[in-house]
């Protein structure tokens, strides 16, 4: 329940983050767990610094030191950022640098209604919920039934189920559902073919318009998505990439090699030909390997209905009624193969 409010003390049922010399672990605070035989046994969490009796965490304060059998660690209250670093991976997840940009690009503030597809491991969902609380809502969809179910269970266990609806649904095939038509301030897609979801995003957005963001690892996906966004009269379409590098800070002592004495014949020859002194620095070194790519973020604004380009609005209306061949062609565009073709 530790995701809902700021807390001072750890209670049973909380998820806590155990911090051990630069390693983070998420622990569910249950005094007892079931073993393989289904019997209830004492919950003991094993770390590199020895065992932690989870029962002992209850009642201790967040930010405080906890004793392990071979050392000590600290317990922190989970934030969406700490959760992203420790959560059980059911899929690839989106990390804080991209999450932060997504939240800002979607213009999310408390009170917003935002749609997310797919839910995945719920890394972004936790951050979305924090941002739109207390009177906004997140609708999140995954086409994998088990994942959708696990996500819903997790939101309940974390005490944030009031702010989120997690559903099993193939949104590319079925859309977001009639209930959500005209409800969303923002739509986020992390799907293999986001361009097919653009029309559903348009349907789900408020008539005052809204923001769209798609996360795609491949540039071909981005190209198709951008074309689909243009066709649906989005404006300010832009694509970006965000990367974060962690610098390793350390003290470094560097030898100083003096060469100036060579200019003159010195009395105390021979001088030792090796570094003569040392100099101290605090350095930030860049890692030898670092993430070079996560995904492209494509963002766009859907303007309010009254200003959306006329021809496009007409097209949407005509999609249901048997439209002429020209419109059919446009519909073909939406089903893919559009990245090479341009408007004739």
């Amino acid at each position: 329940m530790s995701f809902r409010h700021y807390k001072e003390k750890i209670e049973e049922g909380d998820t806590v983050i155990l911090y051990l010399s630069n390693h983070l672990h998420a622990i569910e605070v249950k005094p007892e767990i079931k073993n393989k035989k289904g019997e209830l046994i004492e919950n003991v969490y094993q770390t590199t610094f020895g065992a932690l009796k989870v029962r002992n965490l209850i009642g201790s304060e967040y930010g405080s030191k906890v004793e392990l059998s071979k050392g000590w660690g600290h317990v922190l209250q989970p934030t969406p950022e700490l959760w992203s670093l420790t959560l059980p991976h059911r899929t690839q997840i989106i990390y804080t640098p991209d999450i932060s940009m997504i939240l800002l690009q979607l213009d999310l503030v408390p009170g917003c209604v935002v749609i997310e597809a797919g839910t995945g491991s719920g890394s972004l969902t936790h951050a979305l919920i924090r941002r739109i609380r207390p009177h906004g809502h997140v609708y999140t969809f995954d086409f994998h039934d088990h994942r959708a179910m696990l996500a819903q269970e997790e939101f309940e266990a974390h005490g944030i189920a009031d702010f989120v609806t997690a559903k099993h649904r193939d949104v590319l095939a079925e859309g977001f559902g009639e209930d959500l038509n005209g409800k969303a301030d923002a739509v986020f897609l992390d799907l293999p073919s986001p361009w097919t979801g653009v029309k559903h995003a348009v349907a789900a957005m408020k008539k005052e318009g809204g923001r769209f963001c798609s996360f795609s690892p491949c540039i071909e996906q981005v190209q198709r998505t951008c074309l689909a966004l243009q066709e649906h009269s989005f404006q300010d379409i832009s694509t970006m990439e965000v990367l974060q590098t962690e610098l390793k800070v350390s003290r470094r002592t560097i030898p100083v090699r003096d060469l100036s004495f060579l200019k003159h014949k010195s009395s105390n020859n021979p001088v030792e030909e090796k570094p003569s002194s040392e100099k101290n620095y605090i350095v930030g070194s860049w890692p030898a390997t670092a993430p070079g790519h996560t995904g492209y973020l494509t963002v766009a604004t859907l303007p309010p209905q009254y200003i959306r380009r006329k021809c496009k609005v007409d097209k949407d209306i005509m999609e249901d009624s048997k439209a002429d061949s020209e419109v059919d062609q446009v519909a073909d565009h939406e089903n893919g193969k559009m990245c090479i073709e341009e408007n004739p």
Binding site: Y19, N22, L24, H74, L76, L82, P97, I219, V222, Q223, C226, L227, I237, S238, T239, M240, E241, V242, L243, Q244, T245, E246, L247, V249, R251, I282, G284, Y296, T298, C339, I340, E341, E342
Partner: peptide, 28 residues
């Protein structure tokens, strides 16, 4: 960072730097 490491009253200390690039997306 070095000062705080010595004081050891903070956890999960991290020094980061960002890189961001925008793209022109046009057919071909």
């Amino acid at each position: 960072y070095i000062t705080l490491k010595c004081l050891s009253n903070v956890a999960a200390l991290k020094l980061t730097c960002n890189w961001m690039r925008n793209y022109q997306i046009l057919p071909e």
